[in-house]
Amino acid sequence: MEYTDDIGVLKNIANDLRVDIVKCLTKSGSGHPGGSLSAIDMLTALYFSRMRHDVNNSGGDKYDRFVLSKGHAAPALYAVLARCGYFEKSCLDTLRQVDSILSGHPYAPSTPGVEVSTGSLGQGLSMANGMALASKLDNLDRTVFCMLGDGEIQEGQVWEAAMTSAHYKLDNVIAFLDNNGLQIDGPVKDIMNIEPIGDKWRSFGWEVFEIDGHDIGAILTAIDKARKVTGKPSMIWAHTVKGKGVSFMENKVSFHGVTPTEIELETALADLAGE
């Protein structure tokens, strides 16, 4: 597996994965490009640099865990898992098809490397807490990473879970908030305002690290700092751009849950090739 601290290499991996994401979504004809592209730099930093994991021992005691609470960003996770070798890259071409191992949203029973099923928003942080509690009971040196969407934190259960992480002093929980500012019906601030985001998490007893979610160096630094926090959970509050990297998708609500056409794919690939 390609582990590296080289930011340039990680950037290239993220770019390759963006290509995989738009390609497999174009092929599937349905799915969520916007939130996959906003999350991919963080996933890249995790799976190719900071998260301890093993394709032959998925979920094993010695390894960290990742919960994609914003399950609709499954294509980003699948692209990462394929590149890591959890399954053949060709599987990406079967995304959302009936016999595929890649369901529309993460479905643990069918996909290697996926520990829990998500997709109904708001439940992932609770599940991450459960894993973290188990790890503490077993004295395991395991970090449980969890990625939340910004619209997702409108779900009340997220705040129940936020209390639980702090109450049980789960310093082995590190969450990411993919704050791209848009949800399917429009701007988050117009649909149901979630601000002030940092104050909310801090007041719930979390350490908060505010970063640019597309700055790989900043992501790595935030993860390292969060790992050093003791006695409380950490939230990496990442400002991101929905559809990041594809010109016509960036900051467009319409690309939350609509896939590119074949013609649009060509533009997307040109964007990602730096043309």
């Binding site: 979920g59 865990r65 919960v67 643990a108 520990e115 829990v116 708001g122 439940q123 992932g124 609770s126 599940m127 991450a128 807490n129 459960g130 894993m131 973290a132 509690l133 188990a134 790890s135 009971l137 077993d138 009340g156 259960q157 129940e160 879970a161 209390m163 639980t164 109450h167 049980y168």
Partner: peptide, 27 residues
Amino acid sequence: ERFFNMGIAEADMISTAAGLASAGKKP
């Protein structure tokens, strides 16, 4: 040490139990 009072939050309780189970516990 193996009892978790989740407060008045049933949704969180069930998903947390799921996480515990996925990490090998019998919740």
